[in-house]
Design a protein around this nucleic acid. Structure first.
Length: 588
RNA sequence: GCGGCGGUCGUCUAGCCUGGUCUAGGACGCCGGCCUCCCAAGCCGGCGAUCCCGGGUUCAAAUCCCGGCCGCCGCACCA
């Protein structure tokens, strides 16, 4: 939305909140019991709007990429081991200390690093407490003494089944479901690769103090893709679709130089210059840029901000947040684009003992030299007698190519786990082998969106005041209600009848519509504008004569007259055209 | 979580300081009816708040006091 459309309309956030509550987009949950912060209900219009936003995301990211991306659904609750493997049990935790005097809370590790410059990575709460005591670190705010260090974990904890020691957690991201079921999905998709696995679902994070309405929730809908690719071949064969597109980027380098203005950059340049490390990530960022525009966000109000190392989540090697400007809060994150490397799959391989590698066939067979340890069994038994089995066991652990590492330089003997072995009992044999396939652990780039934030973004970008009137300029393809059907006069039976018939026909054809006959026609237009109905169909005297109706457009109040019979196809065509104005950019 | 400010029909608000006249008033909204040939017109009727929750003071609390919840702002925290 251009600034000119919305000059000085006071606190837009408050107005949107009021409108949302009054007209039924959303409201605070559990209101009659006083409410709980961080939870919101979606009302009738909110559900429709959210479904349309989710639907658009699904269309853009999944349906238009259906040769590449598949959607699955996994549980919200996972056993503890899943989040131990993912690192969330350990790293979704912050060490906190509290000032005994003023009650302020601080990140213990940050406090120590700032006060005495000791590296705190990997230290437990006891060690952190000890460092604070030993260095007499005090409250930076009031110099008061500090409490013991404790941890606060953002995971919601629960138990599974009647056994209280069977700990489970509500997922804070949908990603782990995709990693854990990676093997099954691959099998179901006949080993297609590269592959994106998408999931849309609820996640929970026990935020310390959520504010900002729909922006920071304790429970929300996440929409993410884990896109798996070969780290040795990260080329993206779709990059051409977006390579000429300019996106606004603020890199970590720029941020370190205290540059605050994002720079427009061609996606191809960002890849070639190494600004975005992984071409696939660059592609999804381009798609996300198109997606945000399709939601109605002005290009100037979108940029991608690269996160600094200490800002990144534990699993990520490069992260860009897609930022969108909204009233009151300025720039907020609507999506995160994380290069998660093989971190998650590797961890699940380790914790589950399952193979999650991908096998690829080489373009041409490769010759490798394979080393094998040939053991002189007889000599071992002869020389070591009853100790022989230990020797066999020790030798079996050793990688043949690495055997030289175990040779003790002073004695010349092989030393494995404190067992000494004479070198003459083994021979390392080398022979050439032709291999046609190799195994690798795929790397992952992840675009991840929060649906409720998008809902707010859409409202914030749609909200417009025109004198006394309020209108939501939703793009027609995401509007919760597409058409309002209005008889010009309520006391004219034939108008009412025709209008009712049109209404029935619309809903029978899957067009979301409302029928409104109460009050003056102007009032009804205004009511429809306020909930963002793009098209109002009015049945008037001429309709009775010749079967034509007026379509009144929300944004400029202009009217066109068409034959009632063409109504549905007109609406469909109009809506589709508006959508494809954006989507054409990525389907080239 | 700390500090500041706030919380009265769906919405905006009057009343609170100076307790009783408040069975809480108005406007908008919503519902029904009348009227109306195109942008919140008018008329009639109706709906709707035990004043955020709990406790205390008092003969008497929307009003004074304490605690909690929720919201906004700042700090802290967080993706």
């Amino acid at each position: 939305m251009k600034d000119g459309d919305n000059i000085d309309i006071g606190d837009k956030y408050d107005k949107i909140m009021k409108l949302a509550v009054r007209r039924g987009f959303y409201w605070p949950s559990y209101e009659i019991y006083g409410g709980v912060s961080g939870f919101f209900d979606l009302g009738p219009l909110g559900v429709r709007l959210k479904n349309n936003i989710v639907g658009l995301w699904r269309k853009v990211f999944i349906e238009l990429h259906q040769d590449l991306v598949v959607e699955i659904e996994t549980p919200i609750i996972a056993p503890e081991v899943v989040f131990k493997a993912s690192g969330h049990v350990e790293s979704f935790t912050d060490p906190i200390v509290e000032c005994v005097r003023c009650g302020r809370k601080f990140r213990a590790d940050h406090l120590i690093e700032a006060a005495v410059n000791i590296k705190t990575e990997g230290l437990g709460v006891d060690e952190l407490t000890r460092i604070i005591r030993e260095n007499d670190i005090r409250c930076p705010s009031c110099q008061g003494p500090l409490s013991e260090v404790r941890t606060f974990n953002l995971l919601f904890k629960t138990t599974i089944g009647p056994y209280s020691d069977n700990v489970g957690y509500l997922r804070p991201e949908a990603a782990q479901g995709m990693f854990v079921s990676f093997k099954r999905v691959r099998e179901a998709m006949r080993n297609r690769f590269p592959i994106g696995i998408a999931q849309i679902g609820r996640v929970s994070r026990n935020e310390i103090s959520p504010r900002q309405g729909m922006i920071r929730l304790r429970e929300f809908t996440i929409m993410e893709i884990e896109f798996f690719f070969d780290p040795d071949d990260p080329r993206c064969d779709l990059l051409y679709r977006v390579e000429d597109r300019k996106i606004n980027i603020l890199t970590a380098d720029m941020r370190r130089k205290e540059i605050q203005e994002p720079q427009p950059m061609k996606i191809s340049e960002a890849v070639d210059d190494g600004v975005i490390k992984i071409p696939w990530q660059a592609y999804w960022m381009g798609v996300s840029d198109v997606f945000a525009e399709a939601l109605g966000v002005d290009k100037d109000n979108i940029y991608f901000e690269e996160k600094l190392p200490h800002e990144r989540a534990h699993y990520a090697q490069q992260v860009f947040d897609q930022m969108v400007k909204v009233s009151r809060w300025g720039w907020i994150e609507i999506s995160g684009h994380a290069y998660r490397t093989d971190y998650d799959l590797s961890r699940h391989i380790k914790f589950s003992n399952q193979s999650l590698e991908v096998v690829k066939t080489l373009d041409k067979p490769m010759k490798i030299t394979e080393k094998k340890i040939k053991i002189d069994k007889l000599k071992i038994i002869e020389r070591y007698g009853g100790e022989s089995s230990k020797i066999f066991r020790a030798l079996s652990k050793v990688d043949p190519g690495e055997i030289h590492r175990y040779i003790d330089s002073s004695t010349g003997k092989i030393l494995i786990d404190n067992i000494e072995i004479d070198p003459d009992i083994i021979v390392v044999e080398e022979h050439e082998k032709e291999i046609k396939t190799v195994k690798f652990i795929p790397h992952v780039v992840e675009p991840s969106f929060g649906a409720e934030r998008l809902l707010y973004i859409v409202l914030d970008n749609s909200y417009t005041e025109d004198g006394e009137r309020v209108l939501l300029r939703f793009k027609p393809y995401i509007a919760p209600i597409h058409v309002a059907v209005l008889p010009l006069l309520e006391n004219d039976e034939s108008m009412v009848k025709i209008a009712r018939d049109i209404y029935k026909k619309l809903i029978a054809n899957g067009v979301s519509a409302i029928y409104d006959s109460s009050g003056s026609i102007g009032r009804r237009y205004a009511r429809a504008d306020e909930i963002g109905v793009p098209y109002a169909v009015t049945v008037d005297h001429q309709t009775i004569k010749d079967g034509t109706v007026t379509i009144r457009l929300r944004d400029d109040r202009s009217q066109i007259r068409i034959d009632e019979k063409d109504l549905i196809s007109w609406i469909r065509k109009e809506t589709e055209e508006q959508l494809w104005r954006y989507l054409d950019n990525i389907m080239v």
